[in-house]
Amino acid sequence: MAKSPKATRVLPNQDHLTSNAFVTLEAAPAASRISLRASPRGAAAFAKNIGFDLPAKPSTSKSKSGVVALWLGPDEWMVFSESEPEKSLQPRRDHREYSATDISHRNTAYIVSGSGAQATLNSSCPRDLSQATFPVGACSRTILGKAEVILYRTGKEKFRVECWRSFAPYVWGLLVSGAQDANL
């Protein structure tokens, strides 16, 4: 019997990397991701799978041992992990009061870092990303140009930009031109 071929997964932004004096743009490594919708009871049940409570305050995040949970809405979170990208975070036992959907390959992400990171994002995102309103650990769904993205501030000068896989070339284009502006 012929050996069945193994599919090779290719990130849409695999080779994307550029930098100037103020900002570095790069593709984030592959990650496993869950889109979670849950009632308060469902959220408590899901928390047992990841070993920590989901963030309850708007626009905040929590993380433990490489697993990150981002608050997106009163009953919605994105949970992701880069530590074992091929292993789904999908819980083995489901619960009636939550819906956990694997979106590992629906999304892809960029890392924007450097003293010009905020200026780069603000070239096409209308959000106030100053540290007073968007501190380290803050996260939110918002828009970048016409693309919906999730921003997550991982450091004073470091952001993670999650976008839909098919939007990656568009988002990359905006980030590259934003980085050029930040370098002026």
């Binding site: 708007p58 209308p126 959000r127 918002t142």
Partner: peptide, 18 residues
Amino acid sequence: MLLIHCPYCEADHPELEF
């Protein structure tokens, strides 16, 4: 740009998100 207060996010956010 108009800022709109979202009662669920408990913050003012740009009108382009609404």
